[in-house]
Design a protein around this nucleic acid. Structure first.
Length: 390
DNA sequence: TCTGGGGTCCTAGGACCC
DNA sequence: TCTGGGGTCCTAGGACCC
């Protein structure tokens, strides 16, 4: 692309996506604090006689976290990633619904397909977000955004927030400025007015660790970061990250919108209800291990990939996490071969402490030949009637 | 009362080859 | 015998994101 032509990038973020999909199914819950989270396999489903059958946060016991909360639930201080037990103390009467990823993937496909009819230059960014390259379109940004929002609404019944800016960094920040159902268009000249007052944590890529370190250096807003000496930032954070901090604070981001990215890895992991011991709980662990490997194999085959590097991930009771991996002479998508490789990795890891999590990952992926008859259809390819919505 | 499951990207050391 | 770089692969860990 001509580097002199100005870019125009949209970031589209579905509003409280999982919770909003659940509200399509249970419209009687609209306006109430609703939390989606926990394990889908052990929670009671709502009774047929109405809202009284929904389970409440107060009755939850376990290790689950909040996946999404409606805006009514966020008022209580509930946010994504929070432990459900903690959320229950903040809002004991909030409704708790199990996550149904099959349904979310289905609605994800719907909204992405609808947007693709307006512009096919879409970068997937998780199940509920996309970047759209609008550079080659001629309509003005507000008109385009309204058309996109309308298409998303008509195809799914859901609302989204859109930010349009000269690059992905700024588009992402501004899609968040007027949530929910927001629309924000911004150019480089708007940065001092609209961006500089925001906390540095609004920048995609500045997480808890960097945020904390910046705070100890007296830098909490993007304007403070923009005014910081680049040499100082590089001395504190290293050449690469320090240089990046300086650039993003000034709204600079040259990353292209990547269409049709191939996956780099496919994994399955599970956190146990209680911490398990390698010896005393050997049979349970062995069963879980086998089924994780089978799951990875199924996903590889379903997506048409083979993998040359198999990894395991263990989390001990103290939350320390270790990984081991092995690279095979030939790539595979076979469950038994994956399990053999993963078992070799397991032998390299100490197993004295109890485990809270076990995971298996396949990486170094390449396209594998898969007979059509052996392909396992993915959830979103199935007709509604046979998708496992419950 | 601790902290899910699915990912991406980066760093860094050692092996190995030229 | 000693001492080089550069490049790539493999492995482990960690930050970060949705």
């Amino acid at each position: 692309m001509d580097s002199k032509s100005p870019r125009r990038v949209a970031h589209l973020d579905m509003d409280a996506f999982y919770a909003s999909v659940e509200l399509l199914r249970y419209p009687e819950l609209r306006g109430q604090p609703v939390v989606v989270g926990g394990r889908s396999d052990k929670q009671p489903m709502p009774l047929e006689d109405g809202t009284s059958g929904f389970s409440r946060l107060r009755s939850y016991a376990g290790r689950g976290v909040v996946t999404t909360a409606t805006y009514e639930a966020r008022v209580f201080g509930i946010s994504s990633g929070m432990g459900l037990m903690k959320a229950a103390r903040l809002a004991p009467d909030a409704i708790l619904l199990p996550a149904d990823f099959g349904a979310y993937r289905y609605y994800s496909q719907l909204f992405k397909t609808a947007v693709a009819r307006i512009s096919p230059l879409i970068e997937d960014h998780g199940i509920d977000e996309i970047y759209i390259d609008l550079s080659s379109l001629t309509e003005d940004s507000n008109t385009l955004a309204q058309r996109i929002k309308q298409a998303v609404g008509e195809s799914t019944g859901l609302s989204c927030s859109i930010g349009i800016a000269p690059n992905k960094l700024l588009a992402k920040i501004c899609s968040d400025l007027n949530k929910p159902n927001g629309l924000t268009v911004l150019g480089f000249s708007d940065i001092p007015d609209r961006i500089w007052a925001l906390p540095v944590s609004k920048i995609n890529g500045i997480g808890p660790k960097a945020n904390q370190k910046l705070a100890t250096l007296g830098i909490t807003t993007i304007s403070e970061l923009a005014l910081a000496d680049p040499g100082f930032l590089q001395a504190q954070f290293g050449r690469s990250y320090g240089g990046w901090l300086h650039e993003v604070a000034h709204g600079i981001d040259e990353r292209p919108v990547i269409i049709n990215a191939e996956p780099k890895s496919i994994s399955r992991e599970t956190t146990f209800e209680r911490d398990l011991h390698a010896r005393y709980d050997r049979h349970i662990l062995s069963e879980v291990f086998t089924s994780l490997c089978a799951g990875v194999a199924q996903d590889l085959q379903g997506k048409g990939y083979v993998s040359r590097t198999i990894s395991i991930k263990l989390r001990y009771e103290d939350f320390q996490t270790v990984t081991r991996d092995i690279t095979l002479p030939l790539p595979t998508a076979d469950a038994a071969a994956i399990r053999r490789a993963a078992a070799k990795c397991l032998r390299r890891v100490p197993l004295k402490r109890r485990l809270r999590l076990l995971g298996v990952r396949a990486s170094s992926l390449s396209s594998g030949w898969v007979a059509e008859s052996k392909r396992i259809p993915q959830q979103e390819e199935l007709p509604l009637a046979i998708r496992t919505v419950d």
